[in-house]
Design a protein around this nucleic acid. Structure first.
Length: 480
RNA sequence: GCCCCCGUAGCCAAGGCCGGCAAGGCAGCGGACUUUUAAUCCGAAGACCGUGGGUUCGAAUCCCACCGGGGGCACCA
């Protein structure tokens, strides 16, 4: 008759494992439903009893047992000869075994794909991280957390899009190939376009293009996409990662705080069922509202003394902060303002200690070349970083709209670049031209999607929320 | 770029300090078994011990270099 090794061109499952458990979970042990179903998936376990064979089939939804008596199952010997890892489609009555395991009685079956390579140990799975990342297609079958991370991340991103759509934001796509790598301080990847015969940079941020769109009259825009930074790898850094950036006309950074805490809490609830998530054995409560504090406040709290936030490089405030920096082993440079030193102490010694979500507000102007000057404090800008579980989640500001101020900020960056700072920003003349057409008051926000996914998944490394992490290419072709 | 740790069969792994025939389990192969749940039982097999050098009568084990991974530092508005 039919050759069971023949692979069909299409196959129609009528139910998933989860659906069958939902509908027939109440069957009594040993009971037959009288209803047939067709399931498909990978055979992950197999128990042969002579004239009776049990298999465990995994599909995207979960697991279902295959119950195959020799008297019922066609080509029974072939069925028993299936390997762990083979893709199988099976049709038959839904029933429960005497021991109460919901099963499909295999009255017909097809091999859908052969697993020529042996699967990892059914109990211990994959322990070698290198293999897990390089062969994610195997890892996804044997590591439940890997599948869970995919589901959580997907639900999280969907919820973010839904929240933004509900608020009237328009999703756009701006270039990834940039003639000038702008919008952040980072080293870019360089590539070359042949027919234009010029170099392009993979974007390090979409910021400058999105603000051009605010100038263009799109008053609420966002982009959710990959950006690239040619820098070191770590459990929190990947050369390519996903960023949400959004811009809202007529809004300032306080509006961005409200938006951030609401969107993040909604995403957490949608993805994990609660705004409280377990992270490293502790609980992180992401429910709004989050604490708001100035950088000077959080640093003062952490060091246990009142510290100033502003003052020129020669001021008493700067001297006082430099003393504290030295005391806490934070390196500073001559010529730094009080705010710059404060920011350095914050980044090196305080940020990692902040557990509950907090908006750390008001950064020094020198490290924020695209943010608008603070409305009441000289030397600072209206900017915040959202921090949770010691990790930076988001960065936002009241956007700098004044083209003259922006030009002088770019000039300051250029002079830094001349003195050897490879990450300083370049002047973007077209962006200045856009500002000269008029950018209304605007609030902008950047949110690290991978970092948030890490929190929601309880992941210790960014590689666990990225399907195919960047690795050095394999030298050989593979094993066996 | 620097420092530390790891690499033993398709997978999980013992052995490494203190050099002497490379344990065990899963998967795979052969056999038994009609209600199993990591099925069980019997049998046979499977290893350039990451790669290349060195020390030694003898190296998975000690030393050096390299490759790959992990962690830390630096870098990361």
């Amino acid at each position: 008759m039919t050759d069971r090794r023949d692979i069909p061109y299409r196959f129609e499952p009528t139910a998933t494992a989860a659906e069958l458990h939902g509908v027939y979970g109440d069957l009594a042990a040993g009971q037959e439903s009288g209803v047939g179903a067709t399931v498909a998936g990978r055979l992950m376990l197999r128990r042969i009893q002579g004239k009776l064979c049990f298999g465990t089939l995994d599909d995207a939804s979960g697991r279902i047992q295959l119950f195959a008596p020799a008297s019922v199952t066609p080509d029974y010997d072939c069925f028993c000869g299936l390997s762990i890892g083979d893709w199988v489609g099976a049709t038959g009555e839904v029933m429960k075994t005497r021991r109460g395991e919901l099963s499909v009685k295999v009255e017909d079956w097809r091999l859908l794909a052969e697993a020529r390579r042996r699967f990892p140990d059914k109990w211990h799975g994959l322990a070698d991280t290198d293999t897990r990342y390089r062969r994610r297609y195997v890892d996804l079958w044997v590591t439940p957390e890997a599948r869970r991370a995919v589901a959580i991340r997907s639900a999280m991103v969907a919820a973010i899009r839904a929240e933004l759509a509900r608020r009237g934001f328009v999703e756009v796509e701006t270039p990834m190939l940039h003639p000038i790598a702008g919008g952040a301080a980072a080293r870019p990847f360089v590539t070359h376009h042949n027919s234009l015969d010029c170099d392009f940079y993979l974007r390090i941020a979409p910021e400058l293009y999105l603000k051009r769109l605010i100038v263009g009259g799109l008053t609420r825009v966002f982009e959710l996409g990959r950006i690239f930074r040619n820098e070191g790898l770590s459990p929190r850094h990947s050369p390519e990662f996903t960023m949400l950036e959004l811009y809202e006309a007529y809004a300032d950074y306080t509006d961005m705080m409200t938006l951030t805490e609401e969107v993040v809490a909604a995403a957490a609830t949608a993805a994990t069922g609660a705004a409280e998530v377990p992270v490293g054995g502790r609980t992180l409560d992401l429910a709004a509202p989050w604490r708001r504090a100035t950088m000077a406040e959080v640093v003062s709290e952490h060091l246990g003394l009142e510290l100033p936030a502003t003052g020129g490089p020669a001021s008493r405030a700067a001297a006082e902060l430099r003393t504290e920096a030295d005391r806490h082993d934070v390196a500073t440079e001559a010529g730094w303002s009080a705010g710059r030193i404060l920011a350095e102490i914050y980044e090196r010694r305080v940020e990692g200690e902040l557990w509950d979500p907090v908006f750390v507000c008001d950064f020094p102007v020198e490290v924020s070349p695209l943010a608008r000057r603070h409305r009441s404090i000289d030397g600072l800008v209206e900017r915040f970083e959202a921090v949770a579980a010691g990790r930076e989640l988001a960065n936002a500001f009241s956007e700098l709209a004044d083209p003259d101020d922006q030009r002088s900020r770019f000039a300051a960056q250029e002079s830094r670049r001349r003195s050897g700072d490879g990450e300083a920003m370049r002047t973007d003349e077209d962006y200045l031209r856009a500002l000269e057409y008029g950018l209304p008051p605007t609030g902008g926000l950047g949110l690290g999607i991978d970092r948030l996914a890490m929190l929601l998944c309880g992941a210790e490394t960014i590689r666990d929320v990225v399907l195919f992490p960047t690795l050095r290419p394999e030298a050989g072709s593979g094993e066996s």
